[in-house]
Write a protein that binds this DNA or RNA. Sequence first.
RNA 1: GCGAUUGUAGUCCAGCGGUUAAGACGGUGGCUUCCCAAGCCUCUGACCCGGGUUCGAUUCCCGGCAAUCGCACCA
Length: 569
Amino acid sequence: MTEINNNDLLSVCKRRGFIWPSFEIYGGVAGMFDYGPLGFSLRNNIVEIWRDIYKGGEGFVEIDSETVNPREVFKASGHVDEFADLMTYCTKCNSPFRADHLVKDFYGNPDVLTPRELDEAFEKHGISCPECKGRLGPTEEFNLMFKTSIGPGSSRVGYLRPETAQGIFVNFLNLYRYNREKLPLGVIQTGRGYRNEIAPRQGMIRMREFNMMEVELFVDPEDKDWARFPEAADQKLNLVPNTGDEEITVTLKEAVEKGIIANRVLAYFIYVTKRFLTRLGIDEGKLRFRQHLSDEMAHYAADCWDAEILLSYGWIEVTGIADRGCWDLSRHSQFSGTELTHFKKLDEPKEVECDRVKANHKALGPAFKAKAKAIADALEAKTPSDIRDGKISVSVDGEDVVLGSEFFGVSLVKEKISGERVTPHVIEPSHGLDRIFYSVLEHAYSHDAEKDYTVLRLRPEVAPIKVGVFPLMEKDGLDALAQKIYREVHSHRVEAYYDGAGTIGKRYARMDEVGTPWCITVDYDSLDGPQKGTVTIRDRDSGLQKRVEADSVSTVIDALLAGKSFSEI
RNA sequence: GCGAUUGUAGUCCAGCGGUUAAGACGGUGGCUUCCCAAGCCUCUGACCCGGGUUCGAUUCCCGGCAAUCGCACCA
């Protein structure tokens, strides 16, 4: 634990319009927050940087898909089964248990039991509370997904998505065609996800409605290299591999060569995640990547690493970077009956020779009339190894037909193979936007207890307000010049804030508290004397002031935002 | 969901079975050549919700909601 008091920070956030607990006038709802003007700006700035990295830097494409999905989508993804737990509670000590886990010694596949059958099973096998031996209460379903219905009447069951990823998977074919049937194919999406958490806690860390930034990269399963890997090969990462609890610092190259990270593409995107988070102002010393334990890893995942940030709550997972293998696409393929594959061309087409069963249409036609076509197709789907005693049996429309050698022949055919269909593998860096947002605030927050003075040391790039503009006194024409400067500087991209109220110190303090990196002040020297036409610019973190031409303020702010240091202006 | 603690202006907090519910900070308007939360004046704003006990409840009791911590859950 650090000494940061997260209640103080949350209080600033609420007071100054970063985040507000939702529905406060109606008593509030746990695990729900609204973003205020400053919070929304900050969050958008984070999203813009993420976009800059993936869409700009890596050339990925961005989509926006539905938040309500029909049940089939989450049946295929596994969420309907995985997220709907049958729970029972001890009537004596109230401990909760997964009902199916309690009967697993008696049933091979307890997942399929209904709540009633589970209750009967407790009775029959004398199962009591593992904690206190008390009697178990009735089994209830608890579903972590919000359920709804699509359309009126006997409508389709729908769920609010618990993650945005499925929207990308179900659009795979559209995206694949859009990308002119090539891999790798990188797709990003930001949006809301919904999980009906049993007990949301820790402020913004576990929300019922949350924002995600997800990236799905489809790659050739046999080629998990990445063209830009060499650029990052010597960069260092703090890793906690699942072989022990020790944190190690290694280069990407070492991590892959020693088999710590499964492959180069996964390692590269772990590095991209580190670059992203540190660019937002996350303290590099409080950032590590922890590998999922083998039992924690989803059964389909080949490898999975969490980016964890040290906060006042402890180490908190903010991003998961997983190699999900072919799981997602093969499941959707299986459940939808639509082939979701990539056609991988061979460098050189190859010729193969093999024996094939060929239907004898001349004989089949007269013998089977209308059914002949179906039987012929079934026959040709067979291989010579299916021949038993010179006969092949096929099943057509639920009817078994045994065919003698007069109906088919076996011949050697030469086939030209120019490629094969493969199910792409998915590399998924999935970011919890709200957690990242909160982490950025906490790592920027500094409070001087003696002076009771708060400064948010936000990076200029993420700061919601870039520049405060003040007249020293709101009169004598100082206000008119300050207003003019404000109007020149303020834009959708560079948010400025005019403040003429109270005293100058108070205005600086207000800007420091919301992380505004620079303040412009128009004083009497701006109007008269040798300094005429200049204004002061103050740097938040150093407290230093310089004079710049009033006409050049906009240019100076642009230069600072582009990365020029304050001492260079 | 369970247990413990808590709930008074935007924030921090005082108080009480009958009060005009106090103060500080903040916000607002004004005055002040005002560069790091200076000063003076004006104004602003609160007893979480519902029920019960009582002549009378912000205060006592019960329930709900929310927050903090612990357990469990989740990641």
